[in-house]
Design a protein around this nucleic acid. Structure first.
Length: 822
RNA sequence: GCCGCGAUGGCGGAAUAGGUAGACGCGCGAGACUUAAAAUCUCGUACUAGCAAUAGUGUGUGGGUUCGAUUCCCUCUCGCGGCACCA
């Protein structure tokens, strides 16, 4: 059984109630004076989906890490804003509803209640007065309002196109939800379907989404993911002509290609067009009859493959010769035109010039079809390229563009596509659109927002949007807009909800606007965003897009348009076996059980002590017990010291300098480590202090002054808020000017003079190898001659220098002496 | 294939404007307290040789720069993550 002297269960529950009653971290006043604004600190943890299974130890780490920041920053006088909310719409709740018939609203509410209780139990100091949930009409009213703003600017539009469709989930999927051609959620084969869908025109911001990254403090891999996803690539478009014998040359149809390697154009030995583009450009008319059949057959077959399976068939190139010839405008060579699905319809112009000598894919295709390979760049310089021979590639490209302005022009391409936001699902925000009897789309009027999600729906997937089954929804539209009017039945992608939540936090209860402009100006950007590194590429792109859009509309005074100034990623907590925790592996650790056995303080400190925040770390059940030992030791030490202070016959130990120094160096260490999130080393420093304290602890003497005891308790407060509050409360009998809570205290200061010891240990090396050490008065560390002399004459050094000549003497201030000798 | 990250005792990890490698914790060993256990405390613990003092070796591999390299540069090996027919 654990030590009964510290009853973590009772103590933690007591302070939990106290903080709640006192509303200690709630009702943050967001109106700051210009002076206060310099100290604002907006701390944000990733928007969480309230899953039915409750809190996981993996959630505890980042929440605790930010909570420590919040508490530490408050103690150092910062104006901290630390809100919480729920990304509450989404598929899991709906799928659960399909299975059980329980309405998603109920399961979501239950899940949020559980999460809230668990998070409070951990002692996370969120401002619960600003809590939001995306499924509340007060929230999604403004999600819909943002849709309306985008629609008015032409940045929300409807378009018919091929989309990924999961036949089992009965909904559209985003590209990243398709893994190897299968649905991420249910592993069904994903098919391509032509549907009219709503899109947000994020591509309007593509260049700014790249440029803005220069001004944010984010991990480099996260930035490069953003850049790769946008996929900007500079190159040229070149017009080739299709040779039609029956027409004069100036009437030949043009076919444009996109290339980043214009310098290799003399090596183009064939051209390839994608099946989609071939159809779109209506090139069948130019084919001979037998070719029509062949090409048609190929295109039909290609369409049966999905976008994803096309990618898998990477190595095995397929295609068909059209029998047509195209003319290379640089050398007038006539080269064959192929249709092949290794060229994508949606990128560039959907057609390429194939240069097998300098492109792997073209080479593979050329080898399969027995086509010419012609080298045009050797050792970085052009050959076989007429007047461009001998130029380096970059120069050649410029000259080629300049000399052929009619057929070649600069061109920039992007991989980024517009954001498909329609979902044929129930549990999301309805798209605020109604259709008149002619099928024309109209925005739902502002006074009808929030455009409520109907209740009378059948969740069972039918291939159509569940909202179609609502009688109320249809009736509502006819009542408000007229007979024959119909609603949009699709809901919005939940990414829409989570792309602006950090703006809503500052005006969580505002019923007049999505957020107050002045408050936004005060608090944005978020100073520190902590979020896992998985699945954030789109969340970040979308959030940045929304922020920039709202800035451009004048709702947000944030010139950079970058919502997250600094971002870091927490690592994963792995199972004791070093593998990712999962129910099937049976290696899941339940935080409730750890709290039950050891308390929330132990759980917090343990997770922070495991290693660097960003690293993946395996759980070690025994090490948890070690942290628990440390906290009980601290409790004992402080208790004993307080008790001795109440015995007036005792006095301070005269020789306690070492402990006082250690206290100040510990304050110093934490003051440096905490803002840098180096919690593992901060905790190690606290342990060192406790170890020394324990070693010096004696029954008949006082070791620390009252203010020193309190200073130590304050150091503990951000990390272990419960035990710190308890010890602070107990220390009140010592009669210092106490606050209501240790968490309202100010951070302790360290005495610079006490950081330096009287003597410094200097190391003596010979040829870089440690041979001796000696203590030297710290105040004389500048006396190089004396130090070198002392080092040379150390007894331990004699055998190392005896029959040697010293060639060089090195002294590194306060650290080391090295003799180079032979 | 491309891009990025990483490799330190039995384990998690400390220490990098280049300067005592292994802080702190776990584990392990010995001891104190106890009738006993639990709890708690003390000492030890990179490896090799030695009773010891001490000496040698040591931060994935091989090399380089340097008086001195876990730290900087190059090579390779292994592991992890992301992207991937984007012309």
């Amino acid at each position: 059984m654990p030590d009964h002297r510290y009853n973590h269960q009772a103590v933690e529950e007591k302070w939990l109630q106290f903080w709640d009653k006192e509303r200690l971290f709630c009702d943050t006043d967001l109106a700051l004076t210009p002076e206060e604004q310099k100290d604002k600190e907006y701390l944000l943890y990733a928007f969480a989906y309230p899953s039915g299974s409750g809190l996981h130890v993996g959630h505890v780490e980042p929440k605790t890490a930010l909570d420590i920041q919040a508490r530490f920053k408050r103690m150092t006088g910062k104006k901290v804003f630390f809100p919480v909310g729920w990304d509450a719409f989404g598929l899991p709740a709906e799928n659960y509803a399909i299975k059980t018939g329980i309405h998603p609203r109920e399961t979501t509410k239950t899940a949020i209640d559980t999460f809230r209780r668990q998070i409070k139990r951990l002692g996370i100091s969120y401002d619960w007065s600003k809590e939001i949930a995306t499924n509340h009409p007060e929230y999604y009213k403004w999600t819909q309002w943002i849709f309306a703003q985008l629609y008015r600017k032409g940045l929300a539009y409807q378009s018919e196109g091929k989309v990924n469709w999961c036949p089992s989930c009965q909904t559209v999927l985003a590209n990243e939800q398709v893994i190897d051609g299968l649905c991420e959620r249910c592993d069904s084969q994903v098919i391509q379907k032509n549907l009219k869908q709503w899109y947000f025109k994020i591509t309007a911001y593509q260049d700014e989404l790249i440029a803005g990254l220069q001004n944010v403090d984010w991990p480099a891999p996260t930035k490069s993911q953003q850049i790769n996803w946008i996929g900007r690539s500079e190159g040229a478009q070149v017009d080739f002509a299709i040779k039609i014998a029956a027409l004069p040359a100036d009437k030949w149809p043009k076919l444009s290609i996109f290339t980043t390697r214009l310098d290799t154009i003399f090596g183009a030995t064939f051209m390839v067009i994608s099946p989609e583009k071939f159809e779109q450009q209506q090139l069948f008319a130019y084919l001979s009859s037998d070719k029509v059949t062949q090409v048609q057959a190929y295109i039909t077959k290609a369409y049966q493959k999905t976008e994803e399976t096309r990618k898998i068939g990477e190595k095995d190139k397929t295609g068909v010769d059209t029998g047509l010839l195209v003319v290379n405008p640089f050398n007038q060579e006539e080269i064959p035109l192929f249709v092949a699905d290794y060229v994508l319809g949606g990128y560039g112009t959907g057609a390429i010039m194939a240069v097998p000598a300098h492109d792997e894919r073209d080479l593979a295709f050329a080898q399969k079809f027995g086509l010419l390979v012609k080298e045009v760049v050797i050792d970085g310089r052009l050959v076989n390229s007429a007047e461009f021979d001998g130029l380096i590639s970059s120069v050649a490209i410029e000259k080629m563009l300049a000399s052929h302005p009619k057929v070649a022009r600069r061109s920039v391409n992007y991989k980024l596509r517009d954001w498909l936001i329609s979902r044929q699902r129930y549990w999301g925000a309805p798209i605020p659109i109604v259709y008149d009897p002619t099928g024309q789309a109209h925005l739902v009027k502002a006074e009808h927002l929030p455009w409520l999600l109907p209740n009378d729906v059948d969740f069972k997937p039918t291939g159509e949007s569940p909202l179609r089954s609502s009688v109320e929804f249809k009736a509502r539209v006819e009542k408000l807009y007229g007979k024959g009017w119909t609603p949009e039945y699709d809901t919005m992608d939940t990414f829409v909800d989570s792309s602006w939540y950090y703006l809503r936090y500052v005006s969580a209860r505002d019923t007049k606007q999505f957020a107050d402009q002045n408050t936004l100006k005060t608090w944005l950007p978020v100073d520190f965003y902590l979020i896992g590194e998985e699945h954030i590429v789109l969340h970040l792109l979308y959030s940045r897009f929304f922020t920039k859009f709202l800035r451009d509309e004048g709702y947000l005074d944030l010139p950079s348009g970058e919502p997250f100034a600094k971002m870091r990623h927490q690592g994963m907590i792995l199972g004791p076996d070093g593998k990712k925790m999962s129910k099937s592996k049976g290696n899941v650790i339940n935080p409730d059980e750890i709290i039950q056995e050891y308390g929330a303080d132990t759980l917090r400190i343990y997770e922070m002590f495991m290693g660097p925040l960003e690293a993946d770390k395996p759980w070690n059940p025994r090490a948890v017990a070690g942290v628990s030992r440390f906290l009980r030791k601290v409790y004992r030490l402080v208790n004993r010291e307080i008790a001795r202070h109440q015995n007036s016959s005792l006095s301070l130990l005269s020789d306690r300098q070492q402990l006082v120094q250690k206290l100040h160096s510990t304050i110093y260490k934490l003051t440096l480590d905490l803002p840098e999130l180096k919690y593992n080393t901060a905790i190690a420093a606290l342990m060192e202090f406790a170890n020394l304290w324990e070693k010096m602890d004696a029954d008949d003497v006082l070791l620390l002054k009252t203010e020193e005891i309190v200073a130590f308790i304050k150091l503990l407060a951000p990390l272990a808020p419960f035990i710190a509050e308890e010890l602070y409360d107990q220390a009140k009998v010592l009669g210092f000017s106490a606050q209501k809570s240790v968490h309202l205290e100010s951070w302790p200061a360290y005495d610079q003079a006490l950081l330096q010891k009287e003597f410094t240990n200097l190391v003596v090396q010979v040829n870089g190898k440690l041979r001796a050490q000696f203590a030297w008065p710290t105040k004389n560390l500048t006396d190089q001659a004396a130090i070198l002399n002392q080092a040379k004459n150390l007894e331990a050094m004699q055998k190392w220098l005896a029959d040697k000549t010293i060639h060089k003497e090195i002294y590194v201030f306060g650290k080391i002496v090295n003799f180079v000798a032979s």
